[in-house]
Design a protein around this nucleic acid. Structure first.
Lengths: 135, 135
DNA sequence: TGCTTTTGCTTGCAAAATGCAAGTGCAAAT
DNA sequence: ATTTGCACTTGCATTTTGCAAGCAAAAGCA
């Protein structure tokens, strides 16, 4: 765990996921079926292998994800959001809603965000339920 | 403006404020009366002068803040959130709520977060109104 | 009016983080 | 038995960050 820069909770949370990659990994875990090292490597943004390893380690150390044995193969590892990680969903939803106003995106995604906006709580509960079901 | 890393809006937003300092500057503009370069320098986290200058420039370029003449003095500059910047409030509120569960903080702040949680929309509207009144 | 302080930076350099390419060890498939 | 897939690690170049010092314009003060 890192030494917090200040008493401010915002500052603490930025030390946990305030970089260019962590939230993208969390996004993959939340909205896609990506759950292995190679899955994340294949994401559009093109994270470097060493950076991915470092981020996964830090997310695990900070209790955001768990690293588990993959049921299909001993060669694979399974990464999964913890409860603490799942609870980042409202933050990510708000980021999507904000970006929706200022950044072009696919009609598909726009429609999903519209859904989320209509009843945020319902949307968050639904996704949370799905994420927990994966356990 | 930066070249986006991917089509993903989350990725775009991280390019705008996904670093260890930008949201802290935005926090200062939202919840404290800090509005000048020196005000930000004096924040608890201790941002370096060159980094602050770089972040202010990038936030301005991304339309999150405006840099204005200070009414009191020509030596001072006045930094202010734009509408786009003010709209980051829901994100920051969610971050505070998340952190509330996993990080110790002052009773004062805890009480404020409790208030915000009780009726998020009302809380956000109230702060937004106050921020716009500064214009 | 001259001198000091404040303000908002910039510059130079060291240290850390990032990015890229290649390599490694184990497991699984052929 | 050999190749492929998976999850990394390592070495090195590049970029970003952090720290200390400096600097010009404006303001405050004598």
């Amino acid at each position: 765990m890192i030494q917090p820069r200040s008493e401010c909770p915002l500052s603490y949370s930025l030390d946990v996921f305030g970089d260019k990659w962590s939230l993208l990994i969390i996004r993959d875990l939340m909205f896609t079926n990506k759950c292995t090292y190679n899955d994340f490597i294949k994401s559009d943004e093109g994270i470097a292998t060493n950076i991915l390893a470092a981020r996964l380690k830090s997310l695990e150390e900070n209790g955001i994800i768990d690293k588990l044995e993959h049921p299909d193969s001993k060669a694979k590892k399974l990464y999964k959001l913890t409860q603490k990680g799942i609870e980042l969903l409202p933050i990510i939803v708000e980021i999507y809603i904000w970006t929706d106003k200022y950044f072009a995106m696919s009609a598909d995604l726009k429609a999903t965000i519209k859904e989320a906006k209509k009843d945020k709580e319902k949307f968050i509960k639904q996704i949370t339920k799905e994420l927990k079901a994966k356990s």
